Simulated assay, not measured.
Amino acid sequence: MVDAVEARHLVITHVARATDSLRRLLTWARTGVETPQYTSVDAQAAEIEAGARRPVRELAADVVATAERFDHAVRTLPDAAWYHEVRMRTGEPRTPGTLVPTRLRELEVHHADLAAGYTFADIPPQAGRWIIEDLLEAQRRRADVPPLRIEATDTGLTQELGTGGPTITGTQADLLGWLTGRTNGTGLTTPAPGRSRGRRTGSDAAGPTPTPHASVLGPTLVPAVPHRPGRSPPAPADCYRGRAHPRQQVVWRVR
């Protein structure tokens, strides 16, 4: 059984190793020589497992050092390299410009994962917007993703996947928590059947809370937290070790 301290050590080590993995992709873009994000899922898990046993001081220094290396790699990337396509561990094609919001997503989401007082509501609104846009843009690159529209009631953010899907409304923080699989959709609503979005007023006009469930249709960098209804979610520690649902994505379902 993983206690809270060990879980935080795993999260912090995961962030540091993920940062190095994104830097390797920048090296690929800069040199043109294929440089895998990770050599294997097992290698990724072993790195995180070993690193999580370190003292807190070493963990913090590791996060700072990897951040500085990534920052340097971004700032010194030649102009031509920004157009060079690389592949994520899952096979998803990316260019360096899309790795920067992915790095931001890693930082902010896993900061909230530490359960140390920082929540999705503390994420700066502009950063939250970039993360949501990054999450949905990743979905747009995949086939057979069900349509969905989200509307943030506090920031005015609207995003749409396809057409004709349910509209999910709530605060940007609640939407972000749901989209990353950290919450079950509490605080979010969707129109009741037959009601127009513009006429919803009050809880009796709101439809059921949306619930994400897991599929293995495509990849995500965010640890795999959403799960199929009726099945137990993966152990949180396994999520950060890289073992749970290595090709998972969130697929939208409204009960």
Rank of each mutant, 00 (worst) to 15 (best):
151 E>R: 15
40 S>M: 13
93 P>C: 04
123 I>P: 00
35 T>E: 15
42 D>P: 01
204 D>L: 12
213 H>L: 12
181 G>S: 02
158 T>F: 11
19 T>H: 08
38 Y>L: 05
60 A>T: 03
240 Y>P: 04
86 V>A: 10
111 H>Y: 00
223 P>K: 12
32 G>D: 13
30 R>F: 08
128 G>Y: 03
129 R>L: 11
248 Q>C: 07
205 A>T: 13
227 H>L: 01
232 S>P: 06
106 E>P: 00
28 W>G: 02
75 R>E: 08
57 R>F: 07
192 A>I: 01
221 L>P: 00
112 A>W: 03
204 D>A: 15
2 V>R: 12
59 L>D: 12
67 A>P: 00
13 T>C: 14
203 S>L: 14
53 R>Y: 04
253 R>H: 14
156 G>A: 06
46 A>L: 14
210 P>S: 05
7 A>L: 12
76 T>Q: 13
99 L>Q: 08
177 G>I: 04
147 P>D: 10
123 I>Q: 02
5 V>P: 00
201 T>S: 11
94 R>H: 12
63 V>W: 04
97 G>R: 09
119 T>G: 01
12 I>F: 06
72 H>V: 07
187 G>H: 06
96 P>L: 06
96 P>C: 06
215 S>F: 00
240 Y>H: 13
107 L>C: 09
23 R>Q: 15
87 R>Y: 07
226 P>E: 11
34 E>H: 03
14 H>A: 13
75 R>I: 00
149 R>H: 09
114 L>V: 10
7 A>R: 06
122 D>I: 02
128 G>I: 03
54 R>L: 12
203 S>T: 11
63 V>K: 05
61 A>V: 02
215 S>D: 13
209 T>C: 09
63 V>R: 11
151 E>M: 04
216 V>I: 08
27 T>S: 11
222 V>C: 05
112 A>I: 00
212 P>C: 09
176 L>G: 02
140 R>M: 03
172 Q>R: 07
169 T>N: 03
229 P>D: 11
119 T>Y: 00
129 R>E: 15
164 G>Y: 01
209 T>S: 10
15 V>Q: 11
83 Y>R: 14
85 E>V: 09
127 A>H: 12
